[in-house]
């Protein structure tokens, strides 16, 4: 370069690049493009749902009675309930176990055990949901039947367990357990990753104050991982809410809202209802199923917004600053 011999004119100053850097431009284009693409896809899905759901939403109850599945809201609300109810119990079963396993792998297990255990958990995530459905409907349901009978006999005074227990074990309880197994790997994997990222600095701060290992986990690991745990749980919940095959293969499902978990008659989820009814539907019935899909879409969005709100509430204390 001739910088030493002739002073460049201001316009060609070495501080003002004549060409913007190509790499930056390409990357900026790619990332902006991907961001826009996500919105376009989301918008397209929403538009599709609304447009095809519309005929069912504006039809009179009588028309829906003859050509669809009956009055829309009294049909879809039990399904929405079944969706949320089964997913709720799936979370109740899965989250403590997932956090426990994740913590065991990240902070308690000897290294020789931690790696294979993590691998097995990840493998569970690779099992297709049809397989879970088959297992749940055939093996798990009958295996759990005695548990149903036991719960109904001894804990029947709790409303959840009241009524005649199912003879097949194909109940919302079994369904929730299958869903719990299905969402366990994703929650475990994500939690393990966040737990492993707890700064050594803060773990040592706790230990140096005389914290036992469990106290250290409470002082340093959990607070640090809070946002990550919420995200992991939400991903698991998203999977449970939208799960189709596993639910459809365990439950036949009735159009009811009931909290009893052991009975013959059970509410079913939106996605499973759609999967079960779609093949034999035509005309307005299809529109009605799509309208149910729209309701599921809204439920999922609402759940995610609540999760974001939970995470942002104590942002100042998150450790991100």
């Amino acid at each position: 370069m001739s910088l030493t011999t002739e002073r460049p004119a201001p316009a060609e100053s070495s501080l003002i690049p004549s060409k913007p850097r190509v790499g930056d431009k390409v990357f900026k284009g790619l990332s902006t493009g991907s961001g826009i693409l996500i919105f376009v896809i989301l918008g397209a899905v929403a538009t599709f749902l609304v447009a095809l759901a519309f005929p069912a939403l504006v039809s009179s109850p009588e028309t829906l009675e003859s050509q669809g599945f009956g009055e829309f809201w009294s049909w879809v609300i039990p399904l929405a309930f079944g969706t949320v109810w089964s997913s709720f119990w799936a979370l109740v079963f899965a989250v403590p176990v997932a956090i426990g396993i994740a913590l065991f792998i990240s902070h308690y297990a000897p290294r020789k055990l931690a790696a294979p255990l993590g691998y097995v958990i990840d493998l569970l995530a690779a099992v297709p949901s049809v397989v879970y459905g088959l297992w749940g409907g055939i093996a798990l349901a009958s295996a759990l039947q005695p548990l149903h009978a036991w719960l109904a006999t001894y804990l029947g005074w709790i409303p959840l367990f009241s009524g005649q227990p199912s003879g097949t074990g194909r109940t919302i309880l079994t369904t929730s357990l299958v869903l719990a197994v299905m969402i366990l790997p994703i929650i475990t994997s994500l939690c393990r990753e966040v737990f492993l990222q707890t700064p050594k600095l803060h773990e040592e701060a706790a230990l140096a104050l005389g914290a036992t290992r469990w106290e250290m986990v409470q002082m340093a690991v959990f607070p640090f991982a809070r946002a990550g745990i919420v995200s992991a749980v939400m991903l698991g919940l998203g999977r449970a809410l939208g799960e189709t095959m596993a639910v459809a293969m365990v439950l036949s499902g009735a159009n009811v809202i009931k909290i009893e978990m052991l009975n013959q008659q059970n509410p079913i989820s939106i996605a499973a209802r759609i999967a079960l009814d779609f093949p034999e539907s035509s005309g307005l019935a299809v529109n009605q199923l799509i309208a149910a899909g729209l309701v599921l879409f809204v439920i999922t969005l609402a759940v995610n917004m609540v999760a974001r709100w939970i995470v942002s509430r104590r942002a100042a204390f998150s450790g991100a600053n």
């Binding site: 803060h202 701060a205 706790a206 140096a208 104050l209 340093a220 607070p223 104590r314 998150s318």
Partner: peptide
């Protein structure tokens, strides 16, 4: 026996 570390390490999630 208390300890103070090289880099300040207050717990970020605590007041």
């Amino acid at each position: 026996i208390g300890m103070v570390f090289q880099r300040p390490n207050p717990f970020p999630t605590m007041s």
